[in-house]
Computed example of a mutant assay.
Amino acid sequence: MSAQLPACQLLERFYGQSAHLWPVAPPADGWLQAHSTAMISGDVALREQWASSGKSAASPFDAPFVEQAGQVVLFWPKAHQLGIWWLTWLCNVLPENTPLDVVGEHQGGIKRVPKILSELGMRCDKLDNARRCSLFATRTIAMEPPVNAWQTFEALDLKLVSHPGVFGHGKVDEGTRLMLESIEASLSKKPLNVLDVGCGDGIISAWLAQRGHQVTAVDVSAFAVEACRRTLAANQLSGRVLESDVYSALENEQFDLIISNPPFHQEREITYGPSHRLISEAPPHLRAGGRLVIVANGFLPYPDHLQRVFQDFEVLADNRRFKVYRAAK
């Protein structure tokens, strides 16, 4: 486990070693996990980590919903619209007047929380600040369900459904566009068994399903999984959509094509863990002659890793900002 995070250091300072917390959208932090009774997260990998230590862990889309256990603490996300969604959601699933604390780093937007709480009609008391973090206290109120967070927009002749909790909310990433353009001419006309890793709002899955391919879409985020399902439904397309930490939910399944615009940020930190697993563990999940296609920012060091795993790969497209790579089993 990594070193204790600043926001969790603030919680330890305020609550002490007798803390019994019920964190919502928490980070990976050993102290927090040890001093929490249960958690709520959209991240399936984090939920599995907590569950493996005997802690109750649930998604915001689970039903029936897990009961509150301990002091509720919302970790304020980088995307403030997602923070507003969490506040509204908590007001809907918890009894009115339930104590709710909100914590976060100053550079992550926590200073906006008093204004946001005021606009929602919720009280706000400052409890503590340290380590360039702040901790606020509020209470849940009666509020309408957070249905307006889902946004529908059109791109690439498709209706896309997005949510503030999904990467690239409300727009199609430039790299994704480049990747789809680069494979369209060479894509097999016969139906392929395709795996879309890190499906986001489902643009890649819907684009491929629209062309007759059999699609399995996976994402570590419950928000992305729900968005992808809604996108497929909005276009009258079928596909299987699963919560999965890269290949974790797929066992020994194999595909003709694995395609991805893999993430390389976790909040504000650059991380290559998921993308390296995507590449390293691809061969067992590819049928003979199967291909891996990924798009990445041009500066990312993926060619070396592709070379180690596949020995041979090609650059399908390069617009100076993004590169599209294809490797064959």
Results as ranks from 00 to 15, higher is better:
225 V>F: 08
269 E>N: 14
264 F>W: 12
237 L>E: 05
211 R>G: 04
210 Q>G: 00
268 R>E: 12
268 R>Y: 14
229 R>N: 11
230 R>G: 02
261 N>V: 01
261 N>K: 08
202 G>W: 06
213 H>Y: 09
204 I>Q: 13
208 L>N: 05
254 Q>G: 00
242 L>T: 07
252 N>D: 15
195 L>K: 04
203 I>M: 10
213 H>C: 08
232 L>D: 02
205 S>G: 15
255 F>S: 12
206 A>S: 12
220 V>S: 12
252 N>I: 00
197 V>R: 13
253 E>P: 00
248 S>K: 10
261 N>M: 01
243 E>C: 09
214 Q>W: 10
268 R>F: 11
243 E>M: 11
235 N>K: 06
243 E>Q: 14
235 N>L: 01
247 Y>E: 09
226 E>Q: 15
259 I>L: 15
210 Q>C: 05
245 D>K: 11
222 A>Y: 06
195 L>W: 04
259 I>K: 06
192 L>I: 01
221 S>Y: 05
217 A>S: 14
251 E>Q: 15
266 Q>T: 14
220 V>L: 14
243 E>K: 07
259 I>S: 11
207 W>Y: 06
243 E>Y: 00
197 V>D: 14
231 T>I: 10
237 L>K: 06
247 Y>H: 13
215 V>N: 09
259 I>M: 12
238 S>W: 00
202 G>K: 08
203 I>D: 02
267 E>Q: 15
192 L>E: 08
262 P>I: 08
235 N>E: 02
200 G>A: 07
250 L>K: 08
236 Q>S: 12
268 R>H: 15
248 S>A: 15
251 E>K: 15
244 S>D: 04
215 V>R: 03
194 V>S: 06
206 A>T: 05
239 G>P: 04
199 C>K: 01
237 L>D: 07
193 N>A: 12
226 E>S: 13
189 K>S: 13
204 I>E: 13
268 R>V: 07
268 R>C: 00
265 H>Y: 15
191 P>R: 03
268 R>S: 14
247 Y>C: 09
219 D>E: 04
252 N>M: 03
249 A>Q: 09
231 T>R: 03
210 Q>M: 13
190 K>V: 14
248 S>P: 00
208 L>F: 11
255 F>L: 06
